[in-house]
Amino acid sequence: MSLKAFHIVFVIASILLAFGFGAWSYFDYRDQGATADLVYAIASTLAGVILVIYFKAVLRKLKNISYL
């Protein structure tokens, strides 16, 4: 597995973490009503969206590099 392939795996894990943390923060906000939780939820979801855009850009830019 090349660095490109491992990077793709890593970015997918990061995307899942970002959206997961966003959901965790949102549920905390719903239960407790702390503004900080809402900020974390929004920031984390935004980070997830940025990572998805980055993921697409990586696939496009490194398309000539082997997965092995």
Partner: peptide, 13 residues
């Protein structure tokens, strides 16, 4: 070195 670094980062994830 990048593969090792990615592993270390993935552990933190």
């Amino acid at each position: 070195s990048g593969l090792f670094w990615h592993f270390v980062d993935l552990v933190w994830i």
